[in-house]
């Protein structure tokens, strides 16, 4: 562990861990839009900018994005210097122009004193802020069904050729992770539709709940070498089943087996 200073407060952090963690641990409030604890930091929204310096830099400081900058011993971090706040405001002002009707952006902008964008509001308002969380989570799962297409002002998130993505398994991770909930989908016990692709649902044989698409079950089974039937039972029922198994086990062994188990809880029989 190393020690650094955030806004005058001393905090400890793992060396090389994202500075943002230390900043948050110090209680400094800075917004982020493209960061997610389950994904690699990306540095696209630029809201987590901070000023960093060291005593030996003689007053010189550099602006870095804290989601990517590695925590170092003795670093002095300022999260609200004039230029950091100003740059953050420009970024939010620009995002508000892009997404003038998006509640999350409106709220963040308002928190930074921006009621109305100083730029040209998007004539075709969108909720997509191009944070890339959807494509990154899709890549992270190993599906690679959607990606960012085109560059510059024409950048957008889309499946290949804007057609129903052949690789999509309908897991909804993209929609779940989207901070502005702008990926539309429909799901029922019979069918799920996302990215203009329809999916057949698998019903849990125990409770009858449609909790997963067939494509998901196929994908997970294929990747993990586990029988597909394993994924057909929903998580809640699986836990129940396991609880039953354990309680039966402990009852059958007269409780002696469980006593030696390291994780067993004798009262409930749950692992």
């Amino acid at each position: 562990m190393i020690t650094l200073t955030v806004n005058g407060k001393t905090v400890r952090a793992r060396e090389g861990s994202p500075l943002l963690e230390a900043v948050r641990a110090a209680g400094a409030l800075i917004p982020t839009l493209c960061q997610h604890e389950a994904l690699e930091p990306w540095g696209g929204c630029r809201l987590c900018l901070v000023d960093v310096t060291r005593p030996e830099w003689n007053g010189w400081a550099k602006m870095v994005v804290s989601c990517l900058y590695p925590a170092e011993e003795g670093l002095i971090v300022q999260t609200h210097t004039e230029r950091v706040v100003e740059t953050r405001k420009v970024v939010l002002d620009l995002l508000l122009a892009r997404c003038p009707e998006t509640p999350l952006i409106q709220r963040l902008a308002r928190e930074h004193g921006i009621e109305k964008t100083s730029y040209l509001p998007n004539p075709e308002p969108t909720d997509c802020i191009l944070c890339g969380l959807c494509t990154r989570v899709c890549d992270h799962i190993g599906v690679f069904a959607i990606s960012s297409v085109n560059r510059g002002a024409g950048r957008e998130i889309a499946p290949p050729f804007h057609e129903a993505p052949p690789d999509c398994i309908g897991c909804l991770a993209c929609a779940e992770v989207c901070p502005t909930s702008c990926i539309p989908y429909e799901t029922s016990d019979a069918r799920r539709t996302i990215w203009n692709k329809a999916f057949e649902m698998v019903r849990c044989p125990r409770c009858g709940k449609a909790h997963i698409t067939k494509a998901q079950a196929d994908f997970y089974a294929g990747r993990n070498g586990v029988p597909q039937s394993y994924f057909e039972t929903c998580d809640a029922c699986k836990r129940q089943e396991m609880a039953h198994t354990f309680s039966k086990l402990s009852a059958g062994a007269g409780g002696t087996e469980m006593e030696t188990g390291k994780q067993g809880n004798r009262e409930t029989g749950r692992p």
Binding site: G44, C45, R46, L95, Y119, L130, R151, G152, G154, R155
Partner: peptide, 22 residues
């Protein structure tokens, strides 16, 4: 030139160039 050649990953460059051009 730049508004088309920016990769569009970060907000200041992508949106900034668009607004600057406007």
């Amino acid at each position: 030139f730049l508004v088309e050649e920016s990769c569009g990953k970060c907000v200041p460059c992508r949106e900034g160039l668009k607004q600057m051009l406007a």
